[in-house]
Computed example of a mutant assay.
Amino acid sequence: MAQETITVYAREEPPDRWDAAIFLAGPTPRSPEVPSWRPAALAELRARWRGGGRLVVFDPEDRHGIQDDYTGQVDWEERCLHLADEVLFYVPRDLDTMPAFTTNVEWGMWHDSGRAVFGAPPGAPKNRYLLHYAEKHGVPTATDLPGTVAAALDRIGAGAPRSGGECAVPLALWRTGPFQRWYGAQRAAGNVLLGARVAWRFGDQWGLRVRVRVTAEDRVKDGELVVFRPDTSVVVLYRPGPTLDETTVVLVREFRGPGATADGFVHEPPGGSGPAGTDDPPAVALAELAEETGLELPPGRLRAYGDRQVNAAMSAHRAHVFGAEVTEAELAELRSAEPQGAAAEGERTAVEIATFGEIRRRRLVDWASLGMIAGVIEPGNGAGPG
């Protein structure tokens, strides 16, 4: 698609495809004698857009200067804010002509969305509080309009072609591996994404409400929440026993907020997610094993057992499961291990060792962990009594 920039003014219908979308958030003049900053922003965006495709800019000012539909305006702004890949806040506040009271509310709603940039002239009053939260949440900032536009386009990069319901998925989520794997599976099944809206974001975790045409059933499923987070890598350490129930398994005990167990702790095989962008499950597995138990193993000791979703009714992420048989000496080392974990991140883990029979009878682990353990140690699957 040829490079182009399209402006969608207040209450106008967005197009059905684009590579990137920006919302121009900030104060709007209420008097024709006061010039708006948005025409200059549009000119900057047209001059700087190098994505090679279609850039859509949502401008909440009316094309003809008419402001006579308050509810329609608010609804349009809410819709287009959610459609935007980046919300460009520029706040040349003037307490007499552009006090930006509504902008303050919008900033409070979008500053931690992961898709906001903030700019304001150094002399604009009453922006200190906004700048404080920009710094706190890592929002790119600038002191002039060209710098603010550049910050937004820098994060957008080349964009990504999307159409229909795909346009409702912001680039920050669209580009992640977890989303693309989920969406690839949906398309392979013949399903169609009709719409979506981000419900929440926390770091590298997203909650997305989706509207999907389920082609095989000829119906539309609406409103379900899909959680996207990095995949996990899990290591089941075991020592075979005479029977399956006598096979010894290594667990870690850790406090996790969602845990609702009798002792208040979660009991599970060691594992976790790597840093953002990591796509090397065996390396993540070995790193998490060392971090949570203190045991360092060479890569050749791991055996891969594949990956599956952990909770397919809610989260799209997968657990990559590995197994490793340990020696009696290593079991002894693990039994005497001091508490481990990434203390700087609030993680504290303790090694627990139990037989598979004890794990089942004492209900030590959740169903997902029980399935991972059983999948590794079951007879004929490379572990357990043969």
Rank of each mutant, 00 (worst) to 15 (best):
P161Q: 10
L171S: 03
C167S: 02
Y9Q: 04
L251E: 06
A152L: 07
G51P: 00
A120L: 07
L193G: 02
I373H: 07
G323M: 08
N127R: 14
M314R: 15
T261Q: 11
I66D: 07
V326H: 10
G300A: 02
F202R: 15
F179V: 10
R308T: 14
C80V: 12
A116P: 03
Q186M: 11
A260D: 14
P35T: 01
P35F: 00
P299V: 04
S31K: 11
L295K: 11
L24Y: 11
A10N: 07
G184W: 09
G195C: 08
V74D: 05
R362E: 13
Y133R: 15
E288S: 04
A25E: 11
A188H: 07
R209I: 07
W110L: 15
A368C: 06
F202T: 13
D69W: 14
A20W: 12
L194H: 10
P379M: 12
G147S: 03
E268R: 14
P121E: 04
A158R: 13
E296L: 08
P146L: 06
D94E: 04
G371T: 07
P240T: 07
A368R: 14
N104P: 01
R308G: 01
E345G: 01
T97A: 09
V169I: 15
F356C: 02
A283H: 00
S113W: 14
P299N: 07
P14C: 11
D231P: 00
S273L: 00
G271E: 05
G65L: 08
N381K: 15
E78L: 15
E292P: 00
W200P: 02
D279Q: 08
D231V: 03
K136T: 15
P27I: 13
R162I: 09
E338N: 06
A158V: 06
A337I: 10
L171D: 03
E217P: 00
W110V: 11
G323D: 03
V351T: 08
V266P: 00
R181M: 03
M98K: 15
A276Y: 07
R253H: 12
